[in-house]
Design a protein around this nucleic acid. Structure first.
Length: 431
DNA sequence: TTTTGAGTTGTTCGA
DNA sequence: GTCGAACAACTCAAA
């Protein structure tokens, strides 16, 4: 009977996992393996907050697998050699995995696929990027997606996952050294893993979404982003749940929420079609934008000491919890690139290290959108005013009070900074 | 090929 | 206090 390796990556779940399902269906033993190989991720190996999440997510996945009569085998890279060794040890004759779409990993996986009997599947996106033309505007992109319809049934959770005899040796998860030396993660209030994701999905009430989604002082969003990034839940599972809600109650607002899933999809398609955009602006004229190097201001922003309460609250929420409300992300990002004129790449780097949901495609789209240099970007004159944003979206000041207890003197004057930003943008105009 | 309409998330100013 | 216009021109997508 043929033995199959299932190579887990960003698909740390058992339900609706096409690679796992295909391996189980072959009927023979299945070897679930996770290979830690951060050096293969180019300039974007998982940041500190991501590693914290990964540690706990691997624990959760291992526990679920044990519940199915199996367990998670942990190895360290390089990936190809590790898989080859594992095939030799176990007599496995195929490797199955679910695809990733970051440029460095597409290149890596191509090499692995050429060297091994392998098959890859889609577990992370509603549509493969190559099924649609490269759109640069969200609305027509999303219209095209909706016209295509999300196809196929979800892959069921396997009953039993046959383990090989003997079990291949495995590292302990702790040996990967993913957890921080200093426990700065004690403020993290998350339950990494498939069960945690299901809980959030069940708790999420889409009918309040349109009204509450912009309010950082309320629990108006699903908070599923880190679970989605690690593949503990699939967009198709969310799609299913929302579609059911839509059918039951047409006024459910679920379509507004699904639209956000559309932005995630859009981000992944963009990074696939324009792989240089994680590093470089999509709009080339921004290559000569006069960004400032200002280490002191950057540090003040990172530490939440800009003197603008909503900005500081957001940056402290990020530092403490590994997450920030999306409305506040826009405000702090606008502050960095417009008020401080510090490059979006600096912001993207900080988010990459501190967010538990750090995702190359989403991070790139978000920062380029705010900076005005990306696809369907904010127009240059859209400069968030941190004070009016706070009034609008944190009307009682509860969110700010939760994170900022002491007064801080503003490091710039917003009105003056706004004029400076408009001037800088005028400089890169054609002509 | 040309034309046309539209494009996530805002702010300020002046009537 | 409220409201509409200006903030630019360009690029994209589709007809």
């Amino acid at each position: 009977m043929s033995t199959t390796i299932v190579w887990f990556r960003l698909d740390l779940r058992l339900t609706d996992n096409p690679a796992l399902q295909a391996a189980v269906q072959r009927g023979g033993p299945v070897i679930p393996v996770y290979i830690w190989a951060p050096e293969e991720e180019g300039d974007w190996p998982p940041g500190a907050a991501s590693r914290w999440w990964l540690h706990h997510s691997l624990k959760a996945l291992d526990a679920s697998l044990r519940g199915h009569g199996s367990r998670l085998i942990i190895r360290r890279g390089p990936s190809l050699e590790t898989l080859q060794a594992l095939m030799k040890e176990t007599g496995a004759d195929a490797v199955y995995w679910n695809r990733r779409y970051e440029p460095a990993l597409i290149a890596r996986d191509k090499v692995v696929k050429a060297a091994l009997p392998a098959e890859s599947f889609n577990s992370a996106l509603l549509f493969e990027p190559w099924e649609l033309k490269p759109y640069k505007v969200f609305t027509p992109f999303w219209k095209a997606c909706l016209a295509k319809k999300v196809g196929g049934a979800l892959a069921p959770r396997p009953q039993k996952i046959a383990a090989p005899r003997p079990l291949p040796r495995s590292l302990e998860i702790a040996e990967l050294d993913l957890l921080p030396k200093l426990d700065w993660a004690k403020g993290f209030d998350w339950e990494p893993g498939e069960a945690g994701a299901k809980k959030l999905l069940r708790r999420f009430n889409a009918s309040r979404y349109t009204a509450d989604r912009d309010r950082p002082d309320l629990l108006g969003t699903s908070r599923l982003s880190p679970h989605l990034h690690f593949g503990e839940i699939s967009p198709r599972q969310i799609w299913e749940a929302c579609s059911r809600a839509c059918q039951a109650r047409p006024q459910s607002n679920a379509d507004a929420y699904l639209r956000q899933l559309g932005w995630r999809e859009f981000a992944h398609h963009l990074l696939y079609h324009f792989p240089h955009t994680a590093e470089e602006p999509l709009r080339p004229e921004f290559g000569k934008f006069p960004w400032r190097a200002d280490a002191k201001a950057l540090k003040a922003w990172q530490r939440g000491r800009t003197g603008y309460p909503l900005v500081d609250a957001g940056m402290r929420e990020l530092w403490t919890t590994g997450w920030m409300h999306n409305r506040v992300r826009m405000v702090v990002a606008s502050f960095l690139v417009k008020d401080l004129l510090i490059s979006w790449q600096e912001g993207a780097r900080w988010f990459w290290d501190t967010l538990v949901d750090a995702d190359l495609a989403n991070n790139t789209l978000g920062w380029q959108w705010t900076a005005g240099c990306g696809a369907d970007a904010a127009p240059y004159f859209r400069i968030f005013n941190p004070a009016s944003q706070a009034e609008k979206f944190d009307p009682q000041g509860e969110y700010v009070r939760q994170w900022v207890k002491e007064p801080v003197a503003p490091i710039v004057n917003h009105a003056a900074a706004r004029d400076r930003a408009l001037l800088a943008h005028a400089k890169i105009k054609v002509g």
